[in-house]
Amino acid sequence: MPTKTFPGRYSSLADIAIFIRQAAEEAGLEGFAIYAVETAVDEACSNIIEHGYQGQETGEIRCTTLTDAKGLTIILEDRGRPFDPSSVPDPQLDVTLDERQAHGLGLFFMRQLMDEVTFSTRGPVNVLTMLKHKEHKTE
């Protein structure tokens, strides 16, 4: 159960990606599934840094990865402002360029790219749990 703690700032994102890609490979994920996990975690951590920690470059993000037969589970913990996912509307993807909003894609990516996304709190700690199933090859 590898765990690593990163400073809550954007410059940590590249290091977090290395940690997550390695976990995804070790969990047996392949191809776009690895990229998908990297994207979901990057978006989640960007949200924590921007909204949770208000871009103050304070606080930490604790990343834990768990591998089992189902696939890869990633747990992200922070002590920033709690996040209410219901406050973010789904992005409108089928509108013209002028109507297209530049925000709201992060959470959409997390939900689209992972099989399960759960937000919870444990005292002052925000806990985000994301699961990516391993693809079972059919003969």
Binding site: A17, Y35, E38, T39, D42, E43, S46, L97, D98, R100, A102, H103, L105, G106, F109
Partner: peptide, 19 residues
């Protein structure tokens, strides 16, 4: 190697300006 929604925001804003 990788682009997140932060990069996509830059792209869509540039496209709006250019068009």
């Amino acid at each position: 190697e990788f682009i997140s929604s932060a990069g996509l925001r830059v792209l869509v804003n540039a496209q709006k300006t250019c068009r």
